[in-house]
């Protein structure tokens, strides 16, 4: 549904996005991760037809964005970071103004706007948008992104101004939209947020795509090489005895608990050895690399 080929944007001689190759399938909830200034928003602006790439191409639903931005805008919805509205108009009037660009007639607009305002809990709010709190603006932003019932939804830092209840509702909404077959592209620098809603992620750093796939796969890809060592966590009921195995590189002991660093996964041999020594095993697992740590390491690069 979304594809970029060597997508590049250069500002004042500096590449904000540098040869980005990305692919997001239909119905996916894709998390676009990266630290501030990584080029996430610039990428979204190119994907939504708001700025032209310096090089490369991007496609949404098979349409090359730079060649037909209007056609793309008709099938997408976009919630910008720190979304803005016309402060002298109510939420309903703002949505009506935007809805007119889609050629919707008065009846369609009225029904659609009423539904969306109810969806984001702004139905019946008569305040002008200029008097809205940031959270209310964010919710209205979500409504305006959905005004045309888009196939693809681009959300830039969608939970930035939402309270916990708003975040929960947003997550439910995104899951529901994906259930309806819509593709959702969520840009964020908050890993926990992406982790909560996204099935696949892409990690951007300094304008380049560092990794793409499921969160776990990306974390594994990005984990420090550290030879080919694996970490095995073991906890026993009795005191952990000495275990001899040529594959073991190091052991970090703490009473009944230990972390074995080994060349390969030796859980079967460990279990057998402990059993032979009459030690009861409470827990034995392969330690996955900590996703937060892995991503933080990339952010700090």
């Amino acid at each position: 549904m979304i594809r970029t080929e060597n997508l590049t944007k250069v500002y004042n001689g500096k590449p904000a996005v540098d040869g980005l190759d990305l692919e997001v399938g239909e119905g996916e909830i894709f998390g676009f991760l990266g630290p501030n200034g990584a080029g996430k928003s610039t990428t979204i602006l190119m994907l939504t037809g708001m700025i032209e790439p310096t090089g490369g191409r991007c496609f949404v639903d098979g349409i090359e964005v730079a060649k037909d931005p209007l056609k793309v805008k008709e099938i997408i919805g976009y919630l910008p970071e720190d979304v803005g509205f016309y402060g002298n108009m109510t939420g309903e009037q703002n949505l009506d103004y935007f809805a007119r660009f889609y050629g919707m007639n008065a009846k369609e607009r009225k029904e659609r706007i009423a539904d969306l305002l109810d969806l984001v809990h702004l139905g019946g709010v008569t305040q002008k948008a200029g008097e809205y709190s940031r959270g209310m603006k964010q919710r209205l932003g979500l409504a305006q992104a959905l005004i045309n019932d888009p196939k693809v939804l681009f959300l830039d830092e969608p939970t930035a101004n939402l309270d916990p209840e708003g975040v929960r509702e947003y997550r439910d909404l995104v899951s529901r939209l994906a259930g309806e077959g819509k593709t959702v592209f969520v840009s964020s620098h908050i890993l926990s947020e992406v982790r909560a809603v996204c099935r696949t992620v892409g990690l951007l750093a300094k304008g380049k795509l560092v990794a793409q796939g499921t969160l776990e796969a990306v974390a594994r890809t990005l984990a420090p090489a550290d030879g080919d060592a694996v970490q095995i966590v073991v906890e026993t009921r009795e005191r952990l005895p000495e275990i001899e195995d040529p594959e073991i590189l190091a052991v970090e002991r703490n009473g009944n608990r230990a972390i074995f660093r080994a060349k390969t996964d030796i859980r079967d041999r460990l279990a057998a050895s402990l059993f032979e020594q009459g030690v009861h095993v409470r827990e034995m697992r392969l330690e996955e690399p900590d996703i937060e740590d892995v991503f933080m390491a990339v952010y700090r690069r």
């Binding site: 976009y78 910008p80 935007f98």
Partner: peptide, 17 residues
């Protein structure tokens, strides 16, 4: 004013040149 309130960005995300 549209730049200050960021409404221009919102407007440009809709199908209008």
């Amino acid at each position: 004013k549209e730049k200050e309130t960021r409404s221009l960005k919102t407007l440009l995300s809709h199908p209008v040149y």
